[in-house]
Amino acid sequence: MSPDINPAFLTRVRNELQHMHPAERRLAEFVLTFPGEIASYSASEMARLANVSNATISRFIQRLGYANYDDARRRVRAEKESGAAIFLGAANADTPDQRLASHLEQAQANMARTFATISMQEIDAAALAMINARRTWIIGFRTAQSFATYLRWQTLQVIDNVTVFPGAGETLAESLAGIGLDDLVIVFGLRRRVASFDAVLEQVIRSKATVLLISDESLERRSDVAWHVQCQTPAPGPLFNHVPVMAYCHILATRVVELSGKAGRRRLSSIEVVHDQLGEL
């Protein structure tokens, strides 16, 4: 494998750390903790935050191989857009109560903005598609697998043809090859998306199955799927706010249960009988 000719910002800092003078090292330790701050502050503001001189900022940037501070800021902004948690943290002096208020306010704003673009008719259409599909496949990578598993477990109470993949140790082809025209595929596309995400989504679309795409706001709206739900995920801290994602999954699962009719109630009843026989709950 050839070496990376344009290494990431943090890689450059770590590679040069042992060669730095004390003031540069103090600046390096600050940016290794809060690298996203470079995207937000000017060189003079960063010098004050890290308690170093403007000259130290210039030497530091040159040592890392950037043409100037703005060049470094552009690289950090691009890496911040990828969703890496280390770039989303910030050095702030808010009190704990202020931080809690910020998180709650952002969650409420995210919910309002997300559900302003979603109708109950669309949710019901997706719910009926789950009920009527030959099989529902739910694809969730990384963080999104927890939402995929939640959605499967809640709807499994009334429909038994729901599969989540990939599982631990699994490759994708075995499941993707089984998707057909009469299936529904729910694809979670939340940052940070795996490198294969676009290829997986294209493969699903080629299968001619009905597709429900659940993403964050960073994914451009797709017109080649049946439904594309874009959840707002900004947050005041280092982790994305997934409250709208969970809320959508909850509402969708609720409607699957409510719309499943007699067949769903029969399955619910059968499950309760087996719970009782096994003494599980």
Score class of each variant (00 low, 15 high):
Ile118Val: 15
Ala125Asn: 11
Thr143Gln: 11
Arg152His: 14
Gln157Asp: 13
Asn161Cys: 04
Ser146Asp: 11
Thr163Cys: 06
Ala127Val: 03
Ile123Asn: 02
Ala148Thr: 04
Asn132Ala: 10
Arg134Gln: 06
Gln157Gly: 12
Ile131Phe: 11
Trp137Ile: 01
Ala129Pro: 02
Ile139Phe: 09
Leu151Ser: 05
Ser119Tyr: 09
Met130Glu: 12
Thr149Glu: 14
Gln121Leu: 12
Thr155Ala: 15
Ile123Gly: 05
Ile159Asp: 07
Arg134Cys: 06
Met130Ala: 13
Thr143His: 09
Asp160Val: 01
Ala129Thr: 12
Arg152Val: 10
Ile159Leu: 11
Thr155Gln: 13
Gln145Ile: 11
Ala133Lys: 09
Ile159Ser: 08
Thr163Trp: 03
Thr136Met: 11
Leu128Gly: 14
Leu151Tyr: 05
Asp124Tyr: 03
Gln145Phe: 08
Ile159Met: 09
Ala133Pro: 00
Arg142Val: 00
Ala129Phe: 00
Asp124Leu: 01
Tyr150Lys: 08
Asn161Gly: 06
Gly140Tyr: 00
Phe141Gly: 05
Gln157Ile: 02
Ala126Asp: 08
Thr155Trp: 05
Thr149Asn: 14
Thr163Val: 15
Ser146Gln: 12
Val164Ile: 12
Thr136Trp: 05
Ile123Ser: 00
Val164Cys: 10
Ile131Leu: 15
Ala125Pro: 02
Trp153Ala: 15
Thr136Ile: 00
Leu156Arg: 08
Thr163Leu: 12
Ile138Gly: 00
Thr163Asn: 06
Ile123Ala: 00
Ala126Ile: 02
Thr149Val: 14
Leu156Val: 01
Ala127Met: 02
Phe141Glu: 10
Leu156Phe: 11
Gln121Cys: 06
Ala126Phe: 00
Thr136Asp: 10
Arg142Ser: 10
Ala125Ile: 04
Arg134Ile: 01
Thr143Pro: 02
Ile118Gln: 04
Asp124Glu: 13
Ser119Leu: 10
Thr155His: 03
Arg142Gln: 05
Met120Thr: 12
Ala148Pro: 00
Gly140Pro: 01
Thr163Met: 12
Trp137Asp: 09
Phe147Trp: 13
Ile131Asp: 14
Ser146Met: 08
Val162Met: 02
Ala127Leu: 06
Val164Glu: 06
Ala129Leu: 14
